[in-house]
Structures are given as structure tokens and as C-alpha cells.
Simulated scan of single mutants.
Amino acid sequence: MAASTTPHPPAALPVVETFHSLQGEGFHAGRSAFFIRLAGCTVGCSWCDTKHSWPERSHPRLPLAELSAQVGEARRMGAGFVVITGGEPLHHDLAPLCRQLAVQGLPLHLETSGVDPLRGQFDWITLSPKRHSPPRPELLQRCDELKVIVHHEDDLAFAEAMALQAGSGGPSPRLLLQPGWGSRTGERLALEYVRRHPHWRLSLQCHKWLAIR
């Protein structure tokens, strides 16, 4: 997948929303976090719960300085880290944003499908690879957390293939299987697989159960 070609300087980015909440899923679930959801995604997952974030031009561009100020306020209110998500955030060059946010002193986490080059410095990378649009090898090597969504049996074989590649070049990432929301088949498959394969851990979307963002 090509990165965004929108001819705008990186002093602003298209933003769907920002909010202070709890991380609802993955390895850091339950921790206080500030979220920056960027617009634009061409990966096109049929089960995506943020399809409104796909069209980049439908959302306002916010100055990086404004985003930094929001992060500073969230830090004062107790946020423990910043999550940059989407959409697909790596459609954008995130290096300027990372530099801008670094002054606030909070760890920067990235949530990505890994289809584009990594640009920016992050303290934690959650890679959620997709079978129909596999990630770049360098993202597999760099990720701290590999989180695979499970709807069908084939997703389990894909998860193991991704885990094998992710662990081939250095420290192995945390491995998580997450049932697709509302997929009873995904729930059954993920539960049974984690029960039999202790190197995997179950991830649940707690924020949806709690009806929070």
C-alpha cells in the first residue's frame, strides 16, 4: 500500500477524534491513555468498527502543536501514554508528530496494520496484520505486540505464520488473539486455541463491554 499522497505539509494531520480513556484491548488493556485517531485507510477490513475514519478528506486537519497541547493536558489529567491509531496511521509520515509530542514526556504507542513504512519513533508498536493485506517485513521485526483478529479457522494459521516471522530477527513480541467483535466462531476458535497454545494470550475489547470509547 502506498502512503498518503495528499499534498499537505506535515505540520497538520487529518484527525477523526482525540479522547482520554482507558486502553480497551491488547497487552496494555485497562491503562489510562490518550488517543489520537488519524483519518485515512485503504486496507478496507470488512469488520472494521471505525469505517468513518477511512475517507481522509472528510476530517479536519489539526496542527501538530494543537495535538501536542492536548497531550499535555491529558498528561496532567492522568494519561499514562499516547496511542496513535486510525484509520491506518502509517499512511502518514508520523515523524514530525512524534517529535512534537516527545516534549510532553509520555510514551508513544502506535496501532497499525503494517502496510506502510514505519516513520516516527515509538515506544510500543502494536501490529494487527490482515490476511488480505499483509504487513511489511520490517514492521513484523519491529513490533512489540502482535495482535491477530480471529473470525475463521484460517486466521489461526495466519497468526502462527506472522508470529514465526515476527520472532525471527530478535526478541519475540507479545502474541495476542482477539475474537472479531460479535463473531461467536471467532470467540470459540480464539478461546480454544489460547487454551492449547500458552505462547498466545487472549485479547478482548473491554471498552465495548463497558460502553466507553
Rank of each mutant, 00 (worst) to 15 (best):
P179G: 03
L106W: 03
S68P: 06
D154A: 14
H199Q: 14
T185L: 11
G87P: 08
C206M: 13
P137A: 15
L97P: 07
S183D: 11
Q141R: 09
Q205M: 09
E192A: 15
T18Q: 02
G186D: 08
K130Q: 07
R195N: 05
L101I: 09
D49W: 01
T112N: 10
L189D: 04
Q104K: 02
L204E: 12
L176N: 01
L189S: 04
L127K: 01
S168D: 14
L13A: 09
R37C: 10
R57Q: 12
R61G: 05
P14E: 07
G24K: 00
Y193N: 02
W47G: 06
D123C: 10
P171K: 08
S128Q: 03
P7D: 05
D154K: 07
S21Q: 00
R119D: 13
G24W: 01
T112W: 05
H91T: 07
Y193L: 08
E153G: 00
Q178S: 12
I212M: 07
A190Y: 00
K51C: 00
F27K: 14
G186I: 10
S113T: 14
T42F: 00
G40M: 08
P10D: 09
W209H: 07
Q100I: 02
M162K: 01
L146A: 01
E17Y: 02
F27I: 10
H152C: 10
L164Y: 00
G114R: 08
P171E: 11
F158Q: 03
H151Y: 05
V15Y: 02
S128T: 07
A95Y: 02
C206K: 05
Q205E: 14
M1Y: 05
L22V: 15
C41T: 12
H132K: 11
I36S: 04
L189Q: 03
S168T: 07
T85D: 11
T85H: 04
L90A: 13
R37F: 03
W200P: 02
S58D: 14
